[in-house]
Design a protein around this nucleic acid. Structure first.
Lengths: 234, 234
DNA sequence: GTATTCCATCTTGTATACAAGACAAAGCAA
DNA sequence: TTGCTTTGTCTTGTATACAAGATGGAATAC
């Protein structure tokens, strides 16, 4: 008979590398479309190729990078069509969550907590970049509260993938104010169990974000690439 | 300047092992909850641990197995709650695909082709187990025709996970007849661009499949485990 | 008999060695 | 110059060696 066994008590080197390589990509230190080798990464982080490969294969499965047979790795080039698809998938998942939430007899506590963060008067609101994380948390909590673990897992995964461009949008003050307004309105509709209204608001909210991102991304991307280029020439 | 590079021209050993280990799980040669080690797998397939590990980590990301820190691997135990969640996610994705399809001016050719497979008279119908694959293909084509590649990718992934229990259901003749009828009705509704009717039929179809599976799985699972046990004792 | 400690064994995690093939630049022929 | 061949270097794919720690049973103390 088997005993219960520990479930990875500490973080592997491979896990750390996974995070660190992902950060390289998100910070545009590895640019979309750029080629690199396992040895480069291993040297940069003072590790051997084995855990680097493990991290890279994980990133490959999550669609961030791609391996070419004996010819190195490549950061997946930006594909705006894919981002649009991911946004649509997000809308689908979150609308489904809203429908579920509105059919519940009472709201879960986790959603009540969201009110304290988002339903604020103008002068109580924050405007720093950490709000981008709060925003992700808002949408994540919608899914989590709806109670379907698999949907939540998928939603988290695609939110993470969208994050790389979504972040670029979160520096504009008027967008931040709009986010506060829209989140508050969505929560209010859910509290009134008005499923149709909540879904409409959410769709508008996400589509707006999607359109904003579509507008600014090319510009910001070039900016990020220039920054990267100049920092490398120092 | 970088050249175009080949994209894995042949199948890796790791890829093959991934398939083979997955088959072990699907055939219940590795039972849900069972512990095993990398070395066992490596020896069984006459390979080294490296590609085995790569395959296992991939299976771990897809939720089939789990690694325990320095204490071996485990096939994830059956969790019926998860299967229910996956079924609900499938319904959501396929209903979304149907809505999209019904809004198109004309049906894609790939859907027309499905009619030839499913809209058959009683005596033209087949009844072998290969229909299980056709069934997956049917639902896959719905997603593919709707045109959202990411939704299709996710749908394929969860269909694969459901397949392990879905297969057990596909031996009952009356279930096969019902599948023919229901697929034909769904296609017909889509052809008439009757989104609501198609969605209703599809939901009923998938929920029925889910409920059937729920009923028989425990029985069949024990059967499969007995078979496995007896083949091992020979 | 029971609980505890210790140790041999087994497992994964990581590093390294080697093999097979892709790539690119140099050399060469026309 | 242009195109082809060759060859050396680089990259991933796979095998193996070693390290750190988990597990389980035997030995021990009581």
């Amino acid at each position: 008979m088997q005993r219960a066994r520990v479930k990875s008590p500490r973080q592997n080197l491979a896990d750390r590398l996974y995070q660190q390589i992902k950060e390289l990509i998100f910070n545009f230190q590895l640019l979309p479309g750029e080629y690199f080798s396992e040895a480069e990464i291993a040297q940069r982080f003072q590790a051997s190729r084995t855990p680097v490969r493990e991290a890279l294969y994980r990133l490959q499965q999550e669609q961030y990078v791609e391996v070419h047979f004996r010819s190195g790795w490549q950061v997946k080039p930006f594909d705006f069509k894919v981002f649009e698809e991911l946004y649509d998938l997000r809308i689908l998942l979150e609308c489904s969550a809203i429908e579920r939430l509105c059919s519940l007899p009472s709201l879960p506590d986790s959603l009540q907590a969201l009110t304290q963060i988002w339903c604020l008067s103008q002068d109580e609101r924050r405007a720093d970049l950490s709000l981008c994380e709060e925003d992700r948390e808002f949408h994540h909590q919608l899914l989590a509260a709806a109670g379907n673990g698999e949907m939540t897992r998928i939603h988290t995964e695609i939110s993470e993938r969208i994050h790389i461009i979504r972040r670029l949008d979160f520096t504009q003050p008027e967008r931040i104010q709009a986010t506060y307004d829209e989140h508050a309105a969505i929560l209010s509709a859910i509290q009134q169990a008005d499923s149709e209204q909540a879904k409409f608001l959410l769709q508008t909210h996400i589509r707006q974000s999607r359109d904003e991102v579509r507008k600014i991304t090319l510009h910001r991307l070039q900016e990020a690439q220039r920054q990267q280029a100049s920092s490398m020439s120092i």
